[in-house]
Amino acid sequence: MPDKAAAVLNGIKKQYKDFTLGPVDLTIPAGTIVGLVGENGAGKTTTLKILTGVNPPDSGRAELLGGSPRDAAVRARVGVVFEDAYFYEGMSAARIGRSMAGIFGSRWDAKAYAGYLNRFGLDANKKVKEYSRGMRMKLSLATALAHAPEMLVLDEPTAGLDPVVRGEILDLFLDFIQDENHTILMSSHITSDLEQVADSIAYLHHGTLLFHEDKDTLMQEYGLLRCGEADLRRLPEGMAVHTRQSAFGCETLVKGRTEVLRLLPGAVCDPASIDDIMRFYSGRDGQ
């Protein structure tokens, strides 16, 4: 991962009546796509809101592009998409563009905005409420991109979209990240999307960051071991994250797949997907 950080969360804590986030320590390396995963209510949106200056943390420090997220000049360099927070749906894309031009001033590139609308096939004069879910997301992205941000912070940008639209949006992210100064932090439940585009994965579980690791390392590191209980007992402590028993035997999420295969040469240990990792961690904590 590159050394330069686009964003840093240092000891971030946020307490709500029925939920506590953190302390979270997370560094988003510049020039990468970081996927933030976690179950519903794990604290993904809370984390993104703190990072983008929507809410302050109770304790800890959030740094965005070298400054504070509460600083408007810093926020001018970031494009943000939240799943359900945007302009009123009675507005048209053209009017949203004019409003954003007034908000961003000289940073707003009306031509670029029109270009994105054109690329996404969006009618600028249609009201947002007349758009499909996919079109709304594309409009949100056009709005987030038209002031040439250095970083995109996206909350569930591909949720509820069909595979074609998701593919278009992921392509857009890959285009954006071609510039080595550009960074994306995106939360998603669709882990297959992250497997396609993310450089690293941060996993939030019940408000705690379980890990933030390079995606390829993660895929190599974790494995799904299928073996008998006797074999399982031969593994050193801490290697098996969680075991699920089923009618077909037991399935275990293991950390250190290469080592497991060395210790149990006859066992089947396939690379685990992000979904598998999430399912097993969540199963472990549910016990």
Partner: peptide, 18 residues
């Protein structure tokens, strides 16, 4: 009321406005 229904204020906090 329109701002509330679209959660505009959450979005506004991410924009470069005070």
């Amino acid at each position: 009321s329109f701002d509330e229904s679209s959660h505009w204020d959450t979005y506004a906090h991410t924009l470069p406005i005070h």
